[in-house]
Amino acid sequence: MSGGDIASIFQGAAVTITLSLIGILIGLPIGLGLALLRWANVPVIARIVAVYVSMLRATPLVTLLLLLFFALPNIGIPINPISAAITALVMNTSAFNCEVWRAALMNFPKDQYEAAQSVGMRASLRFRRIVLPQILRVSLPGLVNEMSLLIKVTPVLAVVGVVDITRAAVRIGAETYDPLPPFLVAIALYAPIVFALVALQRWIERRQSAAEAAA
């Protein structure tokens, strides 16, 4: 394995990180939107969201990705590997985020909401000032956990030809007939990223339980 090979795995790392970040940034608000639709019990739509989330949570990312990549062009929507990858990641992570947000919304104390209503806050202000700051704090560990899960499923994107860490490592392994070293380099790249997120989640949980104990 040459220096150039290692450099190409690092280029793959840039792709993995970029796609993960895009997935996280788009998936977070969509998950919140889906959770709000269910929370507000919008007729029909809330049911549809519930079924959609239940189905997506049960679908392996690789199956979803193959579905998008092969079926969309078939019905006339051209799609390249990168946009298929981003769509699949966003659909997958937003379903999980929806459940995290929804759990926080369901535990949100109703009296605070009613108090805000009684002092005449509009719905948007109520949500921004009263609800969001509090559910954000409650959901944070779950959301960070979902981010680490998201990064752990990104190697699947290699299946449709996205050149991420895993695909770069597989290619070098096939060229050099010695797959173990590039795989070990790949692990050395994934592990710290995921570990940082896991450590962040533990730190947030510890800090929150310490704050609760002090209160």
Binding site: K152, T154, T166, V170, F183, Y190, A191, V194
Partner: peptide
């Protein structure tokens, strides 16, 4: 336990299938 939790499953499956033969 922490090691496994930090490694993507797909990469782990690749290593078992393609990497272990080197050993």
């Amino acid at each position: 336990v922490d090691g496994m939790r930090c490694v993507p499953f797909l990469l782990f499956a690749y290593i078992v299938y393609y990497g272990l033969p080197s050993l």
